[in-house]
Design a protein around this nucleic acid. Sequence first.
DNA 1: TTGAAAGCGCTAACAC
DNA 2: GTGTTAGCGCTTTCAA
Lengths: 339, 339
Amino acid sequence: MATIREVAAAAGVSVGTVSNFLNARVTVAASTAARIQEAIDLLGYRVDASARAFRTRQTNSIGLVVPNVTNPYFAEIARAVAHALWKHGIQTFLCDAADDEAVEQAHVEQLIDRRVDGILMSYTSEPGRILDQVAGLGVPIVFIDRAVPGHHSVETDNRCGGALAARHLVALGHRRVGVLAGAVRLPNIRERVQGFVDEMCANGVEVTEGDVLGGPQAAELGRRVCELMDRPSRPTAVFATNDIVAIGAWRALVEIGVRVPEQISLVGFDDIEMSRLTVPDMTTIAQDKVGIGQAATTLLLDVMRGRTEAPRHVRMEPRLLVRGSTARAADPEARYVAA
Amino acid sequence: MATIREVAAAAGVSVGTVSNFLNARVTVAASTAARIQEAIDLLGYRVDASARAFRTRQTNSIGLVVPNVTNPYFAEIARAVAHALWKHGIQTFLCDAADDEAVEQAHVEQLIDRRVDGILMSYTSEPGRILDQVAGLGVPIVFIDRAVPGHHSVETDNRCGGALAARHLVALGHRRVGVLAGAVRLPNIRERVQGFVDEMCANGVEVTEGDVLGGPQAAELGRRVCELMDRPSRPTAVFATNDIVAIGAWRALVEIGVRVPEQISLVGFDDIEMSRLTVPDMTTIAQDKVGIGQAATTLLLDVMRGRTEAPRHVRMEPRLLVRGSTARAADPEARYVAA
DNA sequence: TTGAAAGCGCTAACAC
DNA sequence: GTGTTAGCGCTTTCAA
């Protein structure tokens, strides 16, 4: 592969001039420029980004660490981020932690070693150690979907999202509800649940600890909705903190002959494409994934340019999408007997 | 951030010795090693991968270009690839082409500029220009899910997959079938359709051009299954070349009151998680996504080490997973009248 | 507007 | 085992 030196030789100019031409920082005479361009085309020269990064101490790349790419929610965020950054000439290292703390930690270390210009991250483990490393080295970092005190973040207003779900169910007359909470150690999940529970409470509906199921945030958790159905105070509605869990629950309910929404209402979170494809389609709390990706990008670029001192927390508004999986609560007594 | 020189100074040794220690290629005396390690810990030294890559002409990174990360099929492949490569100390640049040729092309160029050690790719556009660049520069490349004459590839035996679907439907008595083909310009899709049509033909069932619907390979295409239902020779079974399309079709059919599998059988392709979550769950042709990812990794590493001259085409066996979306064909006449 | 030259952090060849 | 040193491809002064 040709080097800048070879281009310079072929064009009969010095390497410095070729560099000036490439970076367009100093104007190069038109005739020289033409000769250089000719040499570049002739030799098929392509700048060595690795050498440039080494010299300028700037890699024009950032790392995006997500807990699980196979969840379309994160895949969509990743797409939005990569696209937005790409328009700024920055490439994204998409790292999938595969829900594994050790993998996540290793990714962050590798990103640091690669000297990425910044990190965007939605962590799966406790962010303590990561912060020690990253913050200690002064690597710009913005958290996505999880607020971290003292650090920048972009996330949906999760409390509000939970409250939205609660209000919707209350309006439909539901008084006994269950929650498929998922990874309660994550602040975003806790906030969704808290927002839901608080709003329910404000409407005179009590949600006890037994009504809330935790566990890995996957379809498998949804299947456990049956445990909720076996309780003496059988719920007439269930709130799941993400769509995959909601779909898992829907599937399990249909399997045991419980009809959605006639016998039980279901609300998800995220609004992934699949939530529009079930029958009935899933009522859910939509997150603006493109907006989150763009906001995170903008914020990170600001931080990278040293334009942001105090930690900023960007909050995006969730939206309630009323679809087919929720309906008015049936007479609870009748249903309890029927079951 | 500390450099190797500072570490050397702190440990009272030369940079060469520190380098030897770091790369463990030459044995370093235990006592020196201890002093160096101490200095590293003290200074918080981390090797500069960017400088090392520049010096060694080896980035220990590869690029993985997929047409669409939001399709769980590719997300799972990406996970498998990244994981396998990671165990070899190689990091993966996951690039999402977002079904856009220009984006795909730009990704490949950036990967070349970054001097990745190799490229793994499932292209969305015609691979011509990409091959000119990549092959011309001698960058190792392995294609995933698409065979390219003269180049390495790893893919499911798509013909066989199509045939498997056909055999299953024929065994259930289906004689009139439709195909939701998707992106027929892609060789893998063409092979799936061809395998299906040929096997049908071998069993005395004719599939005409009108029975095959093309278009972007998304849920939207599935919805067009209704066009197939409106034909005079209404199909009793439909083969979709991926699960997302199959799910889209299922959804559209249920919406118009056609029951799956009682009135129509549906077969998908890929076996993404969601195909297990619909009700009924989707009969599908499973691809071994982890196997594909691993095989592609192994092959690419071989190519990178110059161990492979002649183009290799690794074929993975597809598996038919009989689930709930297929059943015996009902009496076609009766159904045609009923509708 | 152009050229000459130093040097980024690291590895590897060689000498000791 | 360890030290010395050249140099990877590029950018960036500085001088002409």
